[in-house]
Amino acid sequence: MIKVQSEDFNQQVEYDRLRKDPSVGAVVTFSGLVRDINQGEQVSSLTLEHYPGMTESSLAEIVKQAESRWNIIDCTVIHRIGELQLLDQIVFVGIASLHRQDAFAACEFIMDYLKTQAPFWKKETNAQQESYWVDARESDQEALNKWTGK
């Protein structure tokens, strides 16, 4: 299941949704939050912009690639858009699998791809109420390279 939404999500509801099939032996979940300090700036809030249509299709493509590499029984990706405050949840990835190895790997793979391929952009507002676009990090590209063999 892939969802792009402005509303918050509930970890417990999403986790329970992933453990309905009795063949599931492992569920790995990741969630990303709005952090107070980013790239040296004190953050007070952020706004997430996206490319409607492409966002959903690129997430579906990322999940499809993960499913071709690992044994995944069920998968949930939720990404929020719009204005978010400190401590708010931004993204959720949950993987249900037979065993933990596939679930851990697929979860990390999906996040690494999402960070560099899915069309979302963060605009932060700092403590002085100045807004600026967040720069992409080299380390995110390097994280992707471990899956592509570059």
Binding site: M54, S57, S58, K115, A118, V134, A136
Partner: peptide, 29 residues
């Protein structure tokens, strides 16, 4: 660059009705 909502390089051919998007490196997650 994305053509018809798929990231691609800039030597891809275009025809009428195509949608081309230009954007900076993505920063979601």
């Amino acid at each position: 660059v994305a053509v018809n909502q798929t990231i691609c390089n800039d030597n891809i051919d275009l025809s009428s009705g195509d949608e081309v998007a230009f954007f900076p490196p993505v920063t979601g997650g």
